[in-house]
Design a protein around this nucleic acid. Structure first.
Lengths: 404, 404
DNA sequence: CGCAGTTTGTTTAGTTGCGGCACAAACTCA
DNA sequence: TGAGTTTGTGCCGCAACTAAACAAACTGCG
């Protein structure tokens, strides 16, 4: 995901160079007025004015010249900047064990429309992606908005640069499926304009939370989340997703968190993956997993409704301790300034925040790094919004080129 | 180490914007001629010419208009670019368990002069740093060259932004010593011009190897090295050191690599630190550590000279297996495209490269990432050169401002 | 109400880094 | 020796800024 800067940028292809950063500031809500846009960009008021006017002319943002009231400090009130509601959108799609969902997402992570979540997931990626893209295309036709790209979140590591899903185990797709190409083909077939991108769902969750949720403002954001099975991680460095040299970074499932733990298919024992996922929780709490609901929902419900039950509580504490050990290991390696947790890990954090923080502080090497804030994910549909971020990225990088 | 881009860059303070990247290309040897400088920068020949002329006028590089011969392809031969031998230098200093050393380092990582390594290391950081800086100042006076900064490598994690040494255990300094401030004070007192920087030695080794050694061209470079005691790691992402949000990233010593291993002071057991350092090797090989030499040298010698001895070989293989397990864990988290090993780990790699590569491939999740190249460090005095890189960084970022 | 003080938006002029182009220079090869 | 190829250089112009002066829109005080 890191292009080298060797491509010749001719004068014609590059627009106003501050255009992209300015749009990103409005997009992430860090530039609510033109005055702070000026200071954030580090340019003169004249330049900021020109840039804002150009973004408005492109149909991306709205500049409210007459803010009415809502002052506060003295001096001339600044023009308010906001994302244009009727501006272009991107198609965001998500596939997980429960089914799939499509949505239209505008700038600012605003979900404009969503399809009802569909339950049926088949073993054929082409069929599933065809259906979800068609659902998105239907939303698009109904809305009449312009579409500038598409993004897809899958519960699997996605290898770069091929774009293949390496371990889409719990959605029963064949390992190595070329999901990016399949998705791109579906998008083109549906007549949707703009480029198509595919990414791992936890990575995209981290990206979404960094820009619009609990990760806002973090410089080194670590996100760990349990989906329906297994554990995923993601890292956002200086606003950019760090997915490693081949997209496989932060595959944290096989950190050892319990030397006496159960053996794992990876060859080790006591891996984070098998020790802290929903199935581990249910079995540790001595509950029979029911077939009617996803394991994630069963585990979450159990945690929230029956925390008084000693068996449930003990199981939760055991999982918290192991999760804390895994997080401490990651803290020692990555030294993030914020950690956010999703899925069952989020539920575990909320069940006993102090216990988790204590374990992480105790087992990471220095108290200073041990005091790293640990927060729950806050965004609804975060991996859907993250998929949209992927599709918005070219526009944020160079609005003129992307909309041309 | 990552400043946010919110500082206002007025027109007066910024020079030609391609100046820094151009100097970095010459510095790292990636722009041997003006023609490749043109293509690497992605600018026109006119611009590249102006930039090269300006760097020459600044006294940093040399532009050989008459290359004599050494052609090869057809067309007009390009002007050769090289670092100016009589250009400015930086003062590089290094402190480790064996003693300390000072050097003058020019652009391109060229060591201009070194002090003889001094053995005496006292418990008082101010005294040691005073001596090493004075040795460097002496070199500087003798050379008559201009000094534009100073860098120090210490065998301890250095906390950001305070610049304190958190665990300088095996040089008997008090934990939490403000080494950056002490070093900066010594540098000022010695009358040396330019800013002073301090960093962890493994971090600086990685930086040096990335720019001038075995890490050249790697996009995500992981470096793991054993010093005299304990294990350190470092990560260079896109040419920049990743030291985490508070300088404590890649403290990899407490990855679990042997669930049945000996207990570690960190509270876990079988940590990389206590399982793969020189002392662990000597005791596993059932050798009595002698007092006359450093453990690192004893272990290295033993490995190179007595590999035929079954006890030595078995100890080496045990360490290789555990190192491989640790590296595999790091590969799963960081997904680097190259790994370089220093210290005893380098010796272990060279003793049996195939065994180490096989373990890493076997225990990292996918064969693709398992096939990451593992190489030995190649640079002599690499942490010294790395300390110099730290001092050169402001010049590489903005030559005009740094030399003003 | 009016006036000072403050902050922001706008206009204008001026600077500059760099692309585009044309041409000269320095080589290879036939 | 001349065609072909690649590189260096001078010149023009543009576009993205800065700087500075001014206008606008508020608060607060007398």
């Amino acid at each position: 995901m890191n292009g080298k800067a060797t491509t010749t940028r001719t004068k014609l292809e590059r627009g106003r160079s501050a255009l992209g950063p300015a749009l990103e500031l409005v997009h992430t809500g860090r530039a609510p007025t033109r005055a702070v846009l000026t200071s954030e960009l580090g340019v003169t008021r004249a330049t900021a004015g020109a840039v804002a006017a150009e973004l408005e002319a492109l149909g991306l943002i709205r500049v409210d010249s007459s803010p009415g009231s809502a002052a506060g400090s003295q001096g001339r009130p600044s023009h308010r900047l906001s994302v244009l509601e009727t501006g272009p959108v991107v198609l965001a799609a998500q596939v997980h064990a429960d089914g799939f969902r499509a949505a239209l997402v505008g700038l600012g992570g605003r979900i404009v429309a969503t399809s009802p979540g569909c339950v049926a997931v088949m073993a054929d990626p082409a069929q599933v992606l065809g259906e979800v893209v068609e659902a998105g295309a239907e939303l698009l036709r109904a809305s009449g908005l312009r579409c500038v790209g598409a993004g897809l979140a899958v519960p699997s590591a996605v290898a770069e640069p091929e774009g293949t899903a390496l371990n889409p185990l719990h959605i029963a797709w064949p390992a190595g499926s070329p999901v990016r190409d399949i998705f791109a083909a579906c998008v083109r077939r549906a007549g949707i304009t703009g480029p198509a991108f595919t990414g791992n769902d936890v990575n995209l969750t981290a990206l979404a939370e960094h820009r619009h949720g609990a990760g806002r403002g973090a410089q080194h954001l670590l996100c760990v989340a349990t989906g329906h099975r297994g554990v995923g991680g993601a890292l956002v460095l200086d606003g950019r997703l760090h997915s490693g040299s081949s997209g496989l970074a932060l595959e944290v499932g096989h950190l050892t968190v319990n030397p006496e733990g159960r053996p794992c298919h990876c060859g080790g024992r006591g891996c984070l993956d098998v020790e802290t996922d929903p199935l581990a929780f249910l079995t540790t709490a001595r509950r029979e997993p029911g077939p009617e609901e996803s394991l994630l929902k069963q585990a979450g419900n159990l945690l929230r409704t029956e925390y008084g039950d000693p068996a449930v509580r003990q199981a939760a504490e055991a999982l918290i301790d192991r999760l804390g050990l895994g997080l401490a290991g990651l803290v020692n390696i990555l030294n993030p300034d914020r950690i956010i947790l999703g899925g069952l890990h989020r539920d575990l954090l909320e069940a006993d925040p102090e216990r988790l923080r204590a374990v992480v502080a105790d087992r990471s090497l220095w108290g200073r790094s041990g005091s790293v804030p640990i927060l729950p994910c806050t965004l609804a549909h975060n991996s859907l919004v993250g998929a949209a971020e992927l599709a918005w990225q070219p526009v944020l990088d160079d609005p003129l080129a992307a909309l041309a």
